[in-house]
């Protein structure tokens, strides 16, 4: 069936009401396996492919130098971009980035930026004059639900292995990599909690997303601090539900982190 005609899923809603999920998972259980493959593209300074169930995302890092922004004269910059490739879903159409892809990029960006994952000061070459720019690009390959968590995980994984290219004078020698890694301080994990009816679940698959009323994405660092949140969807969360969602996100983010660092 064409996807636009099945934008609600009574079957999923009814199951959730009875505390069950379409694939038999518990509410707090993410899909298995999670696969992370590093350096999937050899021209990138760092790259990674993440699969959560059948959802697949690729992220890659390219580095360049430029002048710093006036308010951060002693820091490098991060520029995050996401494309929902029409190759990954019949619902994604070719063309300039739409709201959904811009939101995806911004959620991933905020988790990385606000957690202080990257030591931006170390990416300053000459204060006020020359700094490193990190160009982080995210591409969806197969959408089977929960692209946000897969994209965030792929982005962090790509940064984890990213190295600086060679710099001669003030010119980047493209294609020549050094052994110096992009300086990182911690690893933020973004975990999205989906609200279906009165219940909260993690890692919704595509059929479940058809029944999702709202979602809350939470970026969490290893010490359990929250660095970014984004609520989406047409239904509200109660204050208690926000608290429950964060508790759930913390727990699941630890499982994602284990996959990332193993």
């Amino acid at each position: 069936m064409n996807d636009n005609s099945s934008k609600s899923n009574d079957y999923v809603s009814k199951l959730i009401e009875g505390k069950k999920r379409i694939d038999g998972r518990a509410f707090n259980e993410h899909r298995q396996p999670i696969e992370i493959t590093y350096n999937v593209s050899n021209k990138a300074e760092g790259s990674a492919r993440v699969k959560i169930g059948d959802t697949e995302v690729i992220a890659g890092v390219k580095m360049d130098v430029g002048t710093p922004y006036p308010d951060t004269m002693d820091q490098g910059n991060l520029i995050t971009n996401a494309e929902l490739l029409p190759l990954s879903s019949p619902m994604f159409l070719p063309g300039p980035p739409d709201a959904q892809s811009v939101e995806l990029a911004r959620i991933v960006d905020r988790g990385i930026r606000e957690s202080g994952m990257i030591d931006m000061k170390k990416l300053c070459i000459r204060e006020g004059e020359l700094v490193w720019n990190i160009l982080l690009d995210i591409y969806t390959i197969n959408d089977d639900g929960n692209l946000i968590d897969a994209a965030a995980l792929a982005a962090v994984a790509a940064l984890r292995v990213a190295v600086l290219p060679k710099l001669e004078g003030d010119k980047v020698q493209f294609g020549e990599f050094t052994k110096t890694k992009v300086p990182l301080k911690l690893l933020p994990i973004t975990c999205t909690i989906f609200k279906i009816g009165q219940h909260l679940v993690v890692d919704a698959n595509r059929q479940e997303e058809e029944a999702v009323d709202s979602r809350l994405s939470v970026a969490i660092s290893e010490h359990g601090q929250i660095h970014a949140m984004q609520k989406g969807g047409s239904v509200g969360f109660s204050i208690e539900e926000v608290d429950q969602a964060i508790t759930l996100a913390k727990k699941v983010s630890e499982q994602f982190r284990k996959e990332l660092t193993k």
Partner: peptide, 17 residues
């Protein structure tokens, strides 16, 4: 048909689009 390079598939980043 749409053919495109991922931005990081080449030595010097290709602008998306």
């Amino acid at each position: 048909c749409i053919y495109d390079l991922l931005s990081f598939s080449v030595t010097e980043r290709k602008r998306p689009g």
